[in-house]
Simulated scan of single mutants.
Amino acid sequence: MMHITTALVFTLASLAAGPAAAADLRVGLAIPETGPFAPLGQQVIDGFRVWEQDTARSFTDLVEGEDRCDARSGVESAQSFAEAGVDVVVGYLCAESLAAALPLLSAEGIPVLTLTVRADILAEEASRNDWSFYRLAPRDSQEAEVAAESIISLWADRPFALIEDGTIQGRELVEAIRVDLEDRGLKPNFIDNYRPGQERQPSLVRRLDAAGVARVFVGGDRSDLAIIARDTASAGLDLTFMGGDALNAPRGEAPIPNGTLAVIATDALPDAASSSAASAFAAAGLPIEGLRLPAYVAAQVLGSLAPMYERGNLGELLERGKFGTALGVVSFGSDGERQQSGFSLAEWRDGRFERVTSAAPQN
């Protein structure tokens, strides 16, 4: 028997030689079909359809199931997928529906590949209960890990602050960064919080001024960082800011300044997709946005495994394979986690975030 990576190389080479037989996989798509999130469900369908058009291949069937982001829809869709005899389910955009579906689908031997759910606890539960859980989405804790690494690389020789907006998300992100930094011998010069959603932040500006910091990590949303950056600049402070994935959001009234750093999901970067995938989406007349690229990558992974699939061995194939995709190499551990970091450091330059390709200290 060939080692799985060798088999995968052979399969991909065979596909490149000419049209192949239809992928013998029935794929369930757990997506919002109605309501305000229905466009996200359509993006998942788009990603699979573009892959099929690009490769001249198709799955045996794409079975859609409603994901309303609640436990009830998770149970109902899982039951419908089992009755339809699907081999794998892709989707479940919310933790509530995913957590409800996993026990039922795992009992039927049907793996689930999520594109969006990041909560670390789900992977821990899946491991504890032996659920068949895999994800392309980055786990939440990777955001803090990449941020801490970036601070060490760029700011270790400058006084810096960690501030957060008092929300659970902001507070937990900053605390995880602080712990990681201090475990590696680097302490922030100033730690503080602020009240979010304010039109001005004068008291925070005074505290940052008194602390004498040059760099500030903001655990909060884009609009708050924009206000803080505006007010500190007006006060004559020359500060560089960094934030998390929350900065990758629609622009507000106040702009964020050029040079603002952000740890954001890699697949949201303008150069994330390979040139061949970009060409495939362009040919289909679709922008690469939202869930289209992750869905396309999921189709690539499953499509490459289909010729080797036998009922019940898909999890083993996923865990042992290394897949060349539009996002680069993708592989999964025995815990179902994607082994490559799904976050990257980016810089706001002239109206968009661009990947930071080096970690040279800033002046």
Rank of each mutant, 00 (worst) to 15 (best):
H3V: 14
T5I: 14
A7G: 15
L8P: 07
A13P: 05
A16D: 11
P19Q: 03
A22K: 09
R26H: 00
L29M: 01
I31Y: 03
E33M: 12
L40E: 13
G41H: 04
R49M: 04
W51N: 01
E52H: 08
Q53V: 07
F59L: 01
G74H: 01
Q79E: 14
A82V: 15
A84E: 04
L93E: 11
C94T: 06
A95T: 15
A99S: 14
P103N: 08
L104Y: 10
E108A: 13
I110V: 15
P111F: 06
R118M: 12
A119H: 15
L122K: 04
E124V: 13
N129G: 09
W131T: 05
Y134G: 01
E143W: 09
I151Q: 09
I177M: 04
I177W: 10
R178V: 08
V179G: 04
L181H: 07
G197T: 05
G197L: 02
Q201S: 14
V205C: 07
R207Y: 03
G212C: 08
A214M: 13
V218W: 01
G220T: 09
S223L: 13
I227W: 01
I228G: 08
D231L: 07
A233R: 13
F241E: 12
G244Y: 12
G244I: 09
L247G: 07
E253Y: 12
P255T: 08
N258F: 00
T260D: 10
A265C: 12
L269V: 02
D271G: 10
S274G: 08
S276P: 02
S276R: 14
S276T: 15
S276C: 03
G285T: 06
L286R: 13
P294R: 08
Y296L: 06
V297Q: 07
S304K: 03
A306H: 08
A306Y: 07
P307N: 09
G312Y: 06
G312M: 05
L318R: 02
K322Q: 13
F323C: 05
L327K: 10
L327F: 09
L327S: 07
V329M: 14
S331E: 11
S344M: 09
S344D: 06
L345D: 08
A346N: 07
D350S: 14
E354C: 01
E354D: 14
A359T: 10
P361W: 07
Q362A: 13
N363S: 15
